[in-house]
């Protein structure tokens, strides 16, 4: 079937981009040692025990590929998948092609939480401060949006308006904090705000996959209800869907996924907007395949963007924040796309 072909293609795309990303980067690796290392994940090996030169070179490559690049690529895959799947669900939920963690203020809330952690209340919880406050910020945003929107019976316009207004308020508070903070703190916080996979917190790797993969599976399960809800709340109700409960759950799950993503890597824009939009054109409106396809494409997209981010300025000894790359690539792509066709859902 056609759908099967698309999925095989997407899986291949993710695999190839991940393998290419493992190969590319600072520190020269030739192809033969790359492939040797690729099939020798350091499960029981101990690099310090090695004797001769050839082996130590292989061990060096194994270390670069499996200890340095692999975790980073894994996180890029997870975050790309999480952001794209969440964006896809938010767009379906709000029947709005512009819905995204950004538009709903979820990212803004997380950014505010993180800024507070970095500048005003540094390291109360040690390395956990940043992810924790980002996460709490996202939840605060969702809680506020939920509160406002429930007063409006979860109308589409109510939700979007609440999100946009909250985003403005959050970013105003962030700017206020920047004004009173010292320039050094502002710079490091800004770098994080732009989205960054270079300074990964290894401890986070133990919990992030649980949130993101678990979240995507839960979102996928609600796919058919989302389909019904695209016919309007009343028709969905007549098809046996408790729209208020489902909307509440979908909102909580997406904010958990987005909170996990932002806590790990800062604000990475456009993945949640452009990937689901493109996938909708290819796959169609059915949410179950759409959520999976978005997750796969988002994973591949973010790995490619992060590879560009860490290699583009490597000869100057610098790295770009991945959020800058997704912003530029995604933004240009989206603009071209906008000029070619009308931004509607037909």
């Amino acid at each position: 079937m056609k759908l099967k072909t698309i999925f095989i293609f997407l899986v291949l795309l993710v695999l190839i981009s991940a393998i290419v990303a493992l190969r590319i980067g600072s520190g020269a690796i030739n192809w033969s040692s790359f492939f040797q290392a690729l099939f020798h994940p350091p499960i029981n090996s101990n690099p310090d025990m090695t004797g001769n030169g050839l082996e130590s070179n292989l061990d060096r490559v194994i270390t670069i590929i499996w200890s340095i690049r692999f975790p980073r690529i894994l996180v890029a895959l997870l975050i790309g998948a999480g952001l794209a799947a969440s964006g896809c669900v938010l767009q379906g939920l709000l029947r709005n092609p512009l819905a995204e963690p950004y538009t709903l203020g979820i990212s803004g809330g997380a950014a505010l939480g993180a800024t507070l952690a970095m500048i005003l209340i540094p390291s109360v919880f040690g390395i956990w401060s940043l992810p924790l406050t980002a996460f709490l910020g996202a939840l605060l945003a969702v809680g506020l949006i939920y509160l406002i929107a429930s007063r409006q019976h979860f109308s589409v316009i109510g939700l979007i308006l609440a999100g946009v207004i909250l985003s403005f308020i959050f970013s105003a508070i962030v700017l206020f904090i920047f004004v009173i903070a010292s320039p050094n703190e502002v710079k490091s916080t800004l770098l994080w705000l732009m989205g960054n996979l270079s300074s990964l917190n290894i401890n986070l790797l133990n919990i992030i996959p649980f949130f993101i993969i678990g979240g995507i599976i839960l979102l996928w399960l609600f796919g058919r209800e989302l389909d019904a809800m695209s016919l309007g709340d009343e028709k969905a109700f007549h098809l046996g869907v408790n729209t208020i409960t489902i909307r509440k759950w979908l909102f909580i799950i997406t904010s958990l996924v987005v909170g996990a993503c932002i806590a790990t890597a800062g604000m990475i824009g456009f993945v949640g907007l452009i990937i689901p939009h493109l996938m909708r054109l290819i796959i169609g409106p059915k949410h179950r395949p759409l959520i999976l396809a978005s997750a796969l494409a988002g994973a591949g997209f973010l790995v490619v963007c992060d590879t560009i981010a860490r290699t583009l300025l490597s000869s100057y000894g610098q790295e770009l924040p991945v959020g800058v790359v997704t912003g530029i690539i995604g933004g240009i792509f989206f603009l071209l796309f906008l000029m070619k066709r009308k931004l509607n859902y037909q």
Binding site: R95, D227, S230, L231, G232, E234, K235, H238, G284, P285, K286, Y345, Q346
Partner: peptide, 14 residues
């Protein structure tokens, strides 16, 4: 089963 008068057809399902 209920057939409403109008449905918002926001998405092009087959």
């Amino acid at each position: 089963a209920v057939l409403p008068q109008n449905l918002p057809l926001a998405f092009s399902f087959t």
